[in-house]
Amino acid sequence: MYVAGIDIGSIYSKAIILKDNQVVGSLVKRTGGEIKVASQKLIEEVLMPLGLQAADLRAAVATGYGRISVPFAQKQVTEISCFGRGIGHLFPYVRTVIDIGGQDSKGIKIDDQGSVDDFVMNDKCAAGTGRFLEVMANALEVKLEDMGLLALLSNSPEEIGITCTVFAESQVISLVAKGRPKVDIIAGIHQAIAERIVSMVKMIRIEERIAITGGGAKNIGLVRELEKKLGSKVIVPEEPQLIGAYGAALFAQDLARNE
């Protein structure tokens, strides 16, 4: 019995295929313009090596901001519940999930079943999200995937105010113009993002242990900075970007079993 979890994020779309509890396929792809088309391509591509088609799936659950535009999904579940479920399944001792996505960041409190007890999410603002890092990487002409490592090289991070992505970008550009070392600016950016995320997540009273998910968890500089601000070592799953899709796939499995 095959089931799928599809997570359509603002920047990346993710898919997980489960066969009897085991992950047999996964894929991460840029979302692009038309979500309906993107989700079709995503499922075709992830199923191709398995010799399957969407019609062969017993169930599919969609999550992420594009969840309402996935034609082959029987159910939509929010990314908040999916991240909780995915982490709860993999790490039952985790009580707080911090998800750093492309468009928003979230703090999610879960119980040992991965059920959500409480959550908090950033408002309509890119500061403290993956998008912010992307904008800054562009402004500094550095590859996004190099940002985290570069941040670790700094000994005296710059102070970056992070009230707003647009203001922060012009601040970064003026620091570059002043000839400040890029690594210090990058380290400052990571500090600012971590501050923003931690102050938001504190609204739900953080309990250990803490897991970090989403594309932002792949940034080692950000993870280290978050650990410093949280005063706690965090758990980063092997594929942090795929946790939402994994949780969705677990919900799809429930759906298939209850049929």
């Binding site: 939509q76 579940v77 929010t78 990314e79 908040i80 519940s81 059920s115 959500v116 007890d117 409480d118 959550f119 999410m121």
Partner: peptide, 8 residues
């Protein structure tokens, strides 16, 4: 947020 809250 509302959907997640109702799911909760």
């Amino acid at each position: 947020r509302l959907q997640a809250f109702i799911e909760m």
